[in-house]
Design a protein around this nucleic acid. Sequence first.
DNA 1: ACGAAAACAGCAAACGCTTACCATCTGTAC
DNA 2: GTACAGATGGTAAGCGTTTGCTGTTTTCGT
Lengths: 368, 368
Amino acid sequence: MTAARENFSERRRPVSVSIRDVAERAGVSIATVSRTVNRISTVNAELAQRVWKAIDEVGYLPNTQARALVSGRSRMLGLIVSEITNPFFPELVQEFESLAVAQGYEVLIGSTNYDPARTESLMRRLLQRNVDGVAVMTFGVEEELVKKLVEREFPLAFVDAGPDLPNIGILKVDYAEGIRQGVQHLAALGHRRVAFISGPLAQRSPVTRRDAFLLAMSELGLKVPPEHLVEGNHSMEGGIGAMERLIALPDLPTAVMCSNDMTAIGALHALYRTTHRVPEDISVVGFDDIHLAQFMLPPLTTVQMSCKDLAVAAVESLRAGIERDHPKHGKREWPISTRLVVRQSSAFPRGSLPALVGTAKGKRSETG
Amino acid sequence: MTAARENFSERRRPVSVSIRDVAERAGVSIATVSRTVNRISTVNAELAQRVWKAIDEVGYLPNTQARALVSGRSRMLGLIVSEITNPFFPELVQEFESLAVAQGYEVLIGSTNYDPARTESLMRRLLQRNVDGVAVMTFGVEEELVKKLVEREFPLAFVDAGPDLPNIGILKVDYAEGIRQGVQHLAALGHRRVAFISGPLAQRSPVTRRDAFLLAMSELGLKVPPEHLVEGNHSMEGGIGAMERLIALPDLPTAVMCSNDMTAIGALHALYRTTHRVPEDISVVGFDDIHLAQFMLPPLTTVQMSCKDLAVAAVESLRAGIERDHPKHGKREWPISTRLVVRQSSAFPRGSLPALVGTAKGKRSETG
DNA sequence: ACGAAAACAGCAAACGCTTACCATCTGTAC
DNA sequence: GTACAGATGGTAAGCGTTTGCTGTTTTCGT
């Protein structure tokens, strides 16, 4: 029965082999093939064998579109990032993608470049493609649109903050703790005058980070004069510009915290061009711990926000929203932890007690 | 007629509004709606108006899966890159994506991480998703798989080299000319001992680049001793390692060309850690002109391979393969030009004639 | 050995859309 | 007034799946 009828084939289009070809080959109905493929247990084991053999022989690949059409689920996830060219995001994309793929999802990536119009049209495209859920790793998505989606119970995942509506997951990054660690590290080294280069303050997340910084400073009883709070835009250029403004101040702070690593890298560059040395004259601390950070000169001390954790939470959150029987269906907040990674861009400030040298050196550690 | 029956709606699933809703609303058949949406001219203008109005009112978005199912074309393109975290690729992805979207295509991105198994499964996923074509911006795709695809007349685009088969576009980067310009630039500055840090030589494109270097050198009558030919892996780490090997040589070359910018950046880093200064003691030239290059210290002299040109060619090549009436249907080779961007990482070698200073300085220019 | 239930496979109806084909209507030539 | 062509809209047949329902076996208790 197995080796019977060797030569049939030939359809109109040689394009794609369909479930029908398999059914014909295995001598069963297409329903049985479908059930076999979907591992539905009512198929007799022996028959299933035959079907699998046929599948292999004709080289059948189920057509995802057709599946999606009938099931209403496309098994695609949308991933919206601010700017794919910002090194943090490719790392995130990579993690997100491999997790999604492991769960049988494909990923549609979009970069908004901080343009609300782009974001809107991107969302529309994703919806039209029937993605099963969207992770929004950027800011400034219009509430309006989000509301509409949520009404449809469309699974969404946001970083930091999002509307308080059902079926939305919020990936809560623990900025407060991370930035506090950074500030305390600097304070422990003896820094009193610490500046902060923020991200674009028109967005929520950068504001959150800045506020976390201010809180951490005030907890230590340290004042932050307004000129020590400069705005960047989370890019290297922004970091350069902001650092230049700090350098122009009559009294340079002894340390600078940055809202993200690219900003910190920009700050380092701006400083290289001057006579100020890092970390001898000024310490620089970043946030994110992108791959590049450890290759800076000096290697950048930074607060690590694990890409991997973020991606895991995003994918899980979406899956929880999509699959009604997911153990965490309905879970709203997904905590993302942060931790300080001390490298060589931070040190005791010039003129502080030599005793601190040992302390500072002692605390150094490379990432684990 | 327009404002009639205000309150109907209510389907089983509030999920998605279909062509039927529009038809009902506009009081026409679904065929007419479809024709209107697809701008088929046999629809009476006035009627079309009414349909568009209805579309707007009910918020209709055509279901792409269904369209794909019936048309056999998904309007999705696959984009395979080696490593999304290598800064060159996000830039490429961005360009590719916006071009594709402008043409009504969505992009499915995959990163192979140089793993043939990943590449294979990625290809399979893309096929299963019925992408209309795939741009392979990496190397090491198995000929076997490619052959199978080409038999189906599946549109593919490769960089540099690919099998000589129909419906395949080859994006021919003019390495020879680009690298020649780099080498000639160095030679003009007075360099005679120029080393080359290659990419992973197991792949074709890195080999091509190295050969281009050797050719350019021999054209100038310059010898390249084997120890001046070191292998990197196109990453910063690789560049660091390779440069360290060069530094360990008894006679350091006066200039180093690198197979890509990340390698060059790694080389710069390795040199920073030594007493050798760039460009005073040694010149470094990259290849790609990634965004980061201009922010290096010193800004990196490099051979620009325009991401944009590459993306344009890739998308056009695929479109040409997909759409039979495309003006360039069947076009095989798509030339990608390169050009030298002189910045500050290259200068006359120590001890050369002062007269060269002026020449070198005169040639400097920032990217246009 | 009989009947009922369980196990299993097939039929056919969707899913939302495109499009070939057909029906209708209008206008024009005779 | 009739016939016919051209314009335009509707009908329905798919596209490749999944799945509820139904029909046919097989299994098993008695």
